[in-house]
Amino acid sequence: MLQKIKNEIVESQIFKSVFRHGYPDNDLDRAYAIFSSVFLHIHPVKVRRSALRMRYTFCLGGITLFLFIILSVTGIWLMFYYTPYTGLAYRNIKDLQFVIFGGNLMRDLHRFAAHGMVLFVWLHMTRVFLTGAYKAPREFNWIVGVVLLVNTLVLSWTGYLLPWDQLAYWAVTVGAKMASYTPLIGQNGPWGPQLGFLPTNDIMFMLLGGTVVGQNALIRFYVLHCVVLPLVVTVFLAVHFWRIRKDGFSGPL
């Protein structure tokens, strides 16, 4: 009976138009299931049995990716309730905390997944380092990885401003102040003033869109956090995974 229902579904025109293969209970369909799916085809069709050993990767890269997916989903959910306006942002977060159904859950998930992503991207990098997986021919993928690491940190930092509370405001004020010390192009940096950089035209001004953290900074950080940086991470992740397939996986694969 169940077998019959399954066959009805698997043989239907709709199913066949979506999946160009039968249910993966035989080797041919198992192969098709992987390489005919845009999501699954980042995998090879087959891997060595030993590659399944958890003690090599500890799944750290995969966990980082999964945290990034959680962050994207919860982040988009939060965007429905958030206004990047200094007069409203803080109240929006308070609403998430006390009024909106599931608000706390989503905000907590977003916050801790973010901490987790920073931690796991570091652990993943350490695993890659300790297994020598950055050596030829994978040097470039290591560079892509470092770009991902830096982006992960900047994503966390830009997101930090959005609740517009004391923690957010001062962490970003102090961080942005660092930019003003940049040599050559910062108002306080060595040779900055000599080269004509003032509070109104230096690198910190560019970052904040003003001389202090205010509305312009909030909208900048918002756009960076919700659009630009996630896109950059996604593009580099695509390159990252592509290169793992092309360069071959280092492990006992």
Partner: peptide
């Protein structure tokens, strides 16, 4: 054999579906 793995021997491989996907 049946495994398109570059520069590696095709022995002792398993299908990603379901083995690796299950771990993930």
């Amino acid at each position: 054999k049946t495994a398109p793995i570059v520069k590696k021997e095709p022995e002792d491989t398993v299908y990603v579906w379901p083995n690796l996907l299950m771990i993930e």
